[in-house]
């Protein structure tokens, strides 16, 4: 086995690991897509609601709650965090970005309170993954499989929801709030609902992350928003579409592709990158993804002119 030369400088194990984390972060990316793109609400709460989900799930599981209930509780906690950010903005008229930053730093303390210490390990405890895992599959194969199922289910539910009357009202609020109001949409409520939904997904992602990575840690949320945005932007340049069901697919693909690039970069010895270079690689990748579509447009413009 060791004699075979792999095409990629990555083992199957690393590949599946990248897919696993990519799938988890595709939930974050879907949440970020809802706040940044559909609601046009620059929401940094995710840096707090991601570890919040992890903290709630890990603490509950460690204290003997079954992992499914713990995961649902973590999702609800995320929704609640989003609701408060929305409320700060809608009711107290605090600027959207600032409201989310306030919520983000408040959550740092709250997460420490929930866990009672900087991290809660989950080593021997049951998780949604090891409970459902069949004997025949290795854990590192089953985890991405289960996540594919979860992510697809979430995607289809979101596509369906945003095609309902309520979902349409939320999209209209983000697109043209004045028009939405004149059509009888309570835009304040729509923002609250959208923010709750967005952060519920992020909370869910945090809960799943804690259960795949062996526990929750207070610093696990650092840079979540950048990774989420990176996934959205990479997805949009891979598969540009205004159709919602394609846009959600693009966002998921973006998160996975992004993760593969990170794994590739970190596993390529010849580049000489190490784990601490992760954020630099992210920044470069987002920059490239932002500039590429414009370069493409310019070359089309030249041909046309």
């Amino acid at each position: 086995m060791s004699r075979r030369q792999p095409v990629l400088p990555m083992s199957t194990y690393t590949l599946l690991g990248a897919l696993e984390i990519g799938l988890i972060f595709s939930l974050v990316a879907l949440g970020v897509y809802i706040s940044f793109r559909l609601l046009r609400f620059p929401d940094l709460t995710v840096d707090g609601s991601f570890p919040l989900g992890g903290a709630v799930a890990a603490t509950l599981i460690a204290s003997g709650t079954d992992p499914f209930t713990a995961t649902i509780a973590a999702t609800a906690a995320g929704a609640f965090a989003g609701l408060i950010t929305g409320w700060l903005n809608v009711r107290l008229k605090i600027m959207d970005l600032l409201a989310s930053i306030l919520m983000m730093i408040a959550l740092y303390s709250i997460n420490l309170r929930i866990m009672g210490k900087p991290n809660v390990p989950l080593i021997m405890e049951p998780t949604v993954f090891n409970i459902l895992q069949p004997e025949v599959l290795a854990d590192y194969v089953f985890r991405p499989l289960l996540l594919i199922f979860v992510v697809l289910a979430v995607k289809l539910l979101l596509d369906g929801f945003f095609a309902t009357q309520t979902g349409l009202a939320i999209r209209a609020t983000g697109s043209n709030a004045r028009m939405a109001r004149s059509q009888g949409v309570n835009t304040g409520l729509a923002v609250l609902a959208g923010m709750a939904l967005s952060n519920a997904l992020v909370g869910l992602a945090g809960a799943l992350f804690a259960q795949t990575q062996g526990g929750a840690d207070i610093s696990m949320g650092v840079g979540t928003i950048v990774i989420g945005l990176a996934a959205v932007i990479v997805g949009e340049s891979l598969l540009p579409s205004r159709k919602l069901y394609l846009a959600t697919l693009a966002v998921i693909l973006g998160a996975i592709v992004y993760r593969f690039f990170i794994a590739l970069a970190l596993n390529s010895d010849f580049i000489g990158l190490q784990a601490q270079d992760l954020n630099l690689v992210t920044a470069l990748l987002v920059t490239v993804a932002l500039v590429l579509p414009r370069l493409r447009q310019r070359s089309i413009g030249k041909k046309g002119g």
Binding site: T166, S175, N176, M179
Partner: peptide, 21 residues
């Protein structure tokens, strides 16, 4: 709403003042 389709815009108006479900 420029991001929505023609029929989605009309659907939004169709429910003006009604409970959206």
């Amino acid at each position: 709403c420029e991001d929505l389709t023609i029929e989605e815009n009309m659907a939004l108006a169709k429910m003006r003042g009604q409970r959206r479900g």
